[in-house]
């Protein structure tokens, strides 16, 4: 299967550097989450990969080939860039049929992907009547049309209802499971955490991280234990003897930083402290991301144009 190779990629619009010397690979068989605030350069990078925008310097290739040199590119790469790309006056089916014809894909593929994306019942309705969620599904249908080995989706969960979000999560997992290369951009952390295996994080056009998601989280967020007791004095002295600091919270529970639940459980049990609740607080992608961007403060709260 094909991977996406980005090498020293830079794109300037006038004086603004939208993409700044990016180098990373997107590998097959896993879902790569493409994270960053709005304006970080995610969409620009995708357009550069598709040869729609010309890089100022550097290159983006697919299995070593520039996109523009691909014969019948829809058979290799499927992309959703903009859910508004379908003309409002065309039916979804006609929209997909025009795309299929250009790459000599059989017309039945249009009906197959409409079925796959849950649009079969509305396939003959004009796109103008579609909700944003339906347009997203149509954009994803267009991306899947050529049964491509590489799938790139820009903010695919935009406008999807909860059912749609679960659907896209399963779809992405399945595509990666089939050995395809899947790159999905998002600015929603919890959403990305639910499907990504690997992360590429951008800030102001620059690469901030390119790591497996678990590693990204564990390297940045320390484990924490949450505990509730009827005897705070006994708890704090037991923890102090074990070398841990406990912090009391208004809700009546305590937290212990840099600690694992296995150690704290044994410790308080040996000291005979009555325990009402003991749990480890899972580190989230959101915490890890905020930790990353707070060390790079120039990347936060800097709204830019997309």
């Amino acid at each position: 299967m094909t991977s996406i190779e980005v090498r020293d990629l830079t794109k300037e619009y006038g004086t603004r550097r939208a993409v700044d010397d990016l180098t990373f690979d997107v590998l097959p068989g896993r879902v790569t989450g493409f994270l960053g605030p709005n304006g970080a350069g995610k969409s620009t990078t995708m357009r550069l990969v598709l040869g729609l925008d010309r890089p100022t310097s550097g290159s983006a290739t697919l299995g070593g080939h520039a996109y523009a040199t691909l014969r019948e590119p829809l058979r290799h790469v499927g992309a959703l860039l903009d859910a508004q790309a379908a003309h409002g006056s065309r039916t979804a089916r006609d929209h997909l049929r025009t795309l299929a014809a250009s790459n000599r894909l059989p017309q039945r593929r249009a009906d197959e992907v409409l079925e796959e994306t849950g649009l079969a019942a509305v396939a003959r309705r004009r796109v103008r009547t579609y909700s944003l969620g339906m347009r997203q599904r149509l954009g994803i249908a267009a991306a899947l049309l050529g049964d491509p080995g590489v799938v790139m989706l820009d903010e695919p969960s935009n406008g999807l209802d909860p059912e749609g979000i679960i659907w896209i999560r399963r779809l992405l997992r399945r595509l990666a499971g089939e050995g395809r290369t899947v790159l999905v951009s998002s600015h929603l952390m919890n959403e990305t955490a639910s499907f990504a295996d690997h992360l590429v994080v951008l800030g102001r056009g620059r690469l901030l991280a390119d790591t497996p998601m678990r590693e990204f989280i564990h390297a940045r967020v320390r484990p924490r234990v949450r505990i509730r007791t009827t005897d705070p004095a006994a708890l704090t002295s037991a923890l102090a003897r074990g070398g841990h600091d406990a912090v009391e919270h208004e809700a009546g529970h305590w937290t212990v930083e840099h600690a694992r639940v296995d150690d704290i459980g044994r410790l308080v049990s040996a000291a005979g402290v009555p325990v009402l609740e003991l749990s480890s607080e899972e580190a989230t992608l959101e915490q890890a991301y905020l930790d990353l961007t707070s060390t790079e403060t120039e990347f936060t709260a800097q709204p830019q144009e997309a």
Binding site: R47, L50, G51, L52, Y67, A68, L70, P73, L74, V77, A79, L81, D82, A85, A86, L99, S102, N103, A142
Partner: peptide, 9 residues
Amino acid sequence: RLSLAAVPR
């Protein structure tokens, strides 16, 4: 963009 992604020439 969609048209030129399908036909890059």
